[in-house]
Computed example of a mutant assay.
Amino acid sequence: MNLLWRHELPPRPAGRGPKQAVSLDAVVAAAVALADRDGYAKVSIRTVAAELGLRPMSLYTYVPSKDALTVLMVDQVAGEDAPIPADLSPRTRMAAIAHQVRAELVAHPWLLEVSPWRLVLGPGRMRRYERQLGAIEGIGLSDLSMDRVIAVLSEFATGNARMAAAAARDTRRMSDARWWEVHGPVLAEVMPSTMFPLSSRVGATVGELYQAPADPDGAFEYGLARLLDGILREVADRPVPDTPTAGDL
């Protein structure tokens, strides 16, 4: 907790021993860059130290473990979100919440390997939550509904980002066109249209449109639109409190 909130807490007096060669911010930035480049599995105290030209044992003077470093990494990335302008429509502001969550995960796919459950709240994640709440404050939702809207939008964006990240990873290994060249003849033999008529018809339609097994970007926009329709319908259907009349006062 002290490491997360280090910039908000009073400076700690320097301890004994040699002066640290780099800042904790630099350690976290190096770990994020390493995870972005090589994946979360490659992040360790040893590999991050090597990125900084430090001895592995010296990194323990900054962070006690990889788990602690991971918490710092997640919080730093969360702090990168841009504010959502208040003059946008409620629908656009809610859409921005989902777009930001998805963009963060696509840019840092290693986050999908980190459990979001019970992560210690740091300044980055708290400021993001505050911005998200501010984006939907005043549109007619209760406090509980505001939190649930953010959760639903975030979880939907996370699920779609997982598919988008997988598509980006797999197409780097083999293009979709090449995949069909290799596997298409076998699939045509074992999955004749007479056996799977609906799948064949729909699959041919979407395959021609997407030129890929799926369309994560299009699915995201379609699903987000339906989610926002439902949320805004709830707001529109919410009873308006009675306005007191002169006789009631």
Score class of each variant (00 low, 15 high):
M1S: 08
R6Y: 09
P11I: 05
R12P: 05
R12K: 13
G15L: 14
G15I: 14
R16C: 05
R16D: 09
P18D: 08
P18L: 15
P18Q: 08
K19P: 06
V22G: 00
V28I: 15
V28F: 06
A29N: 02
A31N: 04
A31M: 09
A35P: 02
A41H: 06
A41L: 11
L52E: 04
R55L: 15
R55T: 13
P56Q: 08
M57N: 13
S58D: 13
S58P: 00
Y62V: 10
P64R: 06
D67K: 01
A68Y: 01
A68N: 02
M73A: 02
Q76A: 14
V77A: 02
P85V: 11
D87P: 04
S89E: 11
A95N: 05
A95E: 10
A98W: 04
A98Y: 03
V101G: 01
R102G: 02
A103F: 05
E104S: 07
A107L: 08
A107F: 09
L112I: 11
P116W: 07
W117F: 11
M126K: 12
R128Y: 04
E130P: 00
E130I: 14
Q132E: 15
L133F: 05
I136Q: 00
L144I: 14
R148K: 05
R148D: 11
V149E: 03
A151G: 03
L153M: 03
G159R: 07
G159S: 12
M163N: 01
A164R: 07
A167S: 11
A167Y: 13
R169V: 11
R169F: 15
M174V: 12
W180E: 10
E181F: 07
V182F: 07
G184A: 06
G184N: 02
L187V: 15
L187H: 06
A188E: 14
P197K: 04
L198K: 09
G203D: 05
V206W: 07
Q211N: 07
A212T: 03
A214E: 09
D217K: 10
D217P: 00
A219P: 01
E221S: 06
Y222C: 07
Y222M: 15
G223P: 01
R226F: 15
L232K: 01
V235H: 02
A236P: 00
V240I: 13
P244S: 07
P244L: 12
G247F: 09
D248C: 04
L249F: 15
